[in-house]
Amino acid sequence: MYYSTTYPSPIGTITLACDGNNLVGLWLEGQRYHGKTMPEEIVEKNDMPIFDAAKRWLDRYFAGERPTISELPLAPRGSEFRQGVWDILCEIPYGEVITYGDIAKKMAVKMNKKRMSSQAVGGAVGHNPISIIIPCHRVVGSNGSLTGYGGGIGTKIKLLELERVDMSSLFVPKKGTAL
């Protein structure tokens, strides 16, 4: 059985999902792939300890603090490849960014391959079911393009600005899938 609740945030309503003990989803209103990793119906239930913990984490994050990912029990659902990419996302320090290409290189090493497709990495990043906490908003194009955020480019910019990321070398692409 899976449960959900909502959280009113500075960037819009956030939906949280859990399996009773672990957070399995965090989606922004209107986010691409909203809830797509959930295998069954979700029942709304607001009074769960995991939701209380996640909301406190989000309160701290939006207040400009730096809560750590390890403070919450997370259980995102996805293939072994996606799990590997999401693990790398969890290593990106607060206030910093990494490129899809850098993640592809790390995944190639993890999988004992010579190369890994940045596009495959982009697909895994885009399907991250626990936005913000697993920080997919910290991934940018190799040329500094702020592309590839399922929650929308404006939201990505707000999150990076909240974290005081140096935006001087980053730009909004003129065309792309995340606009």
Rank of each mutant, 00 (worst) to 15 (best):
G95K: 11
G95R: 13
G95S: 12
E96S: 13
E96W: 03
E96R: 13
V97M: 09
V97P: 11
I98K: 14
I98H: 10
I98L: 11
T99E: 14
T99L: 11
Y100L: 12
G101I: 04
A104Q: 04
K106I: 07
K106G: 00
M107N: 04
M107C: 01
M107D: 07
A108H: 05
K110L: 15
K110G: 03
K110P: 10
K110Y: 11
M111Y: 14
M111E: 07
M111N: 08
N112L: 09
N112T: 11
N112I: 08
N112Y: 12
K113F: 08
K114Y: 05
K114T: 10
R115K: 15
R115D: 13
R115T: 15
R115L: 11
R115F: 12
R115Q: 13
M116K: 02
M116N: 05
S117G: 07
S117Y: 06
S117L: 07
S118L: 11
S118M: 13
S118W: 10
S118C: 12
S118T: 13
Q119G: 09
Q119T: 13
Q119V: 14
V121W: 02
G122V: 05
G122Y: 00
G122T: 07
G123M: 14
A124D: 06
A124W: 04
A124T: 07
G126P: 06
G126R: 05
H127S: 15
N128M: 08
N128A: 06
P129D: 05
P129T: 01
P129M: 09
P129C: 04
P129N: 02
I130W: 00
I130P: 10
I130E: 03
S131C: 11
I132H: 05
I132A: 02
I133Y: 01
I133M: 04
I134H: 01
I134R: 10
P135W: 06
C136S: 15
C136L: 04
C136V: 02
C136T: 08
H137I: 05
H137K: 14
H137N: 12
V139I: 03
V139S: 01
V140R: 02
V140W: 06
G141K: 01
S142F: 07
S142M: 08
N143F: 00
N143V: 00
G144Q: 06
G144T: 04
S145E: 02
T147M: 00
T147F: 00
T147N: 12
T147K: 05
G148A: 10
G148T: 03
G148Q: 11
Y149M: 00
Y149W: 01
G150I: 00
G151Q: 08
G151P: 11
G151W: 05
G152L: 03
G154C: 07
G154L: 12
G154T: 10
T155P: 01
T155I: 14
K156R: 10
I157R: 08
I157W: 09
K158G: 00
L159S: 05
L159G: 06
L160D: 06
E161R: 14
L162W: 08
L162N: 13
L162E: 10
L162K: 11
E163Q: 12
R164D: 09
V165T: 08
D166V: 00
S168K: 10
S168C: 03
S168R: 12
S168V: 01
S168L: 01
S169H: 15
S169K: 15
S169Y: 13
